[in-house]
Amino acid sequence: MEYHLVYQLFPRSFGINNEIKSVIECFEKNYESIKSPDNNLSSDGVLKVISKDLEALNFRVEKSKLTNDKIKVPVLFGINNRIDKFFDADAVSADGKIVIEVEAGRGYRNNQFLKDIFQACMMPNVEFLVIAVRNHYHNSDDFKSIFQFLETLYISGRLQLPLKGIVLIGY
């Protein structure tokens, strides 16, 4: 089966803006190097491939799992404006409005996408969450599975998220 880069913005009631399109183009430009299942990269491996293109868009990108290389996004502030709680992100736009999370094997199976959504919703300035997942992982299509979940979430209208949108990318 031939796979292609696919993406969808939720809710589906409006189109993708130029900033989000530029992020998607980072994945499109590097698709041959990251596509699943041909390239069995970890999420860190995918992030490393696209990092220079994201940095060219003024994104801060996680360099490694070392504490100083992580991208910490504050979510709670305490006395004297000290950061009491933060969440790590794979990449964040310079203005803090777009957060990117790249997932590999545990994107769907371990419900990592749900944790990504929750954390992005707690980040005060975030407007868009971009979640990139594998198209193919152990005979399943993570993009399709998460697509169906997000479609149900937005169509039902039972849960209102504080985000303008979630972009799902399948690589």
Rank of each mutant, 00 (worst) to 15 (best):
E127P: 07
E2T: 09
F113L: 13
L47H: 05
G78V: 07
R106S: 15
N80E: 12
I71W: 04
F77D: 08
S140T: 07
L168P: 06
L76C: 08
L57N: 01
D142K: 14
E151D: 15
L129S: 03
Q160R: 10
K21W: 13
I79Q: 14
V92G: 06
V99H: 09
N111H: 14
V99R: 13
F149Y: 12
Y7A: 04
S93K: 11
I131L: 14
R158P: 00
Y154I: 00
A132F: 05
A94Y: 13
N80D: 13
N39F: 05
K115P: 04
S36G: 02
I50S: 00
K70Y: 07
Q160V: 14
D142F: 08
S156W: 05
F149I: 04
V126F: 10
G170F: 02
P11T: 13
F147V: 08
F149N: 05
G157H: 01
K48M: 02
Q112R: 13
L41H: 05
F118M: 10
K85L: 14
I100T: 12
V92C: 10
S43E: 08
E19H: 14
F59M: 08
L163T: 07
A56S: 13
K144M: 10
N18S: 09
R82N: 14
R12T: 12
A104D: 12
L66K: 15
I146C: 03
Y137M: 04
F113I: 01
I34M: 07
D69E: 04
P11E: 06
V133I: 01
L41Y: 04
I16L: 02
C121V: 08
G78L: 14
G15M: 09
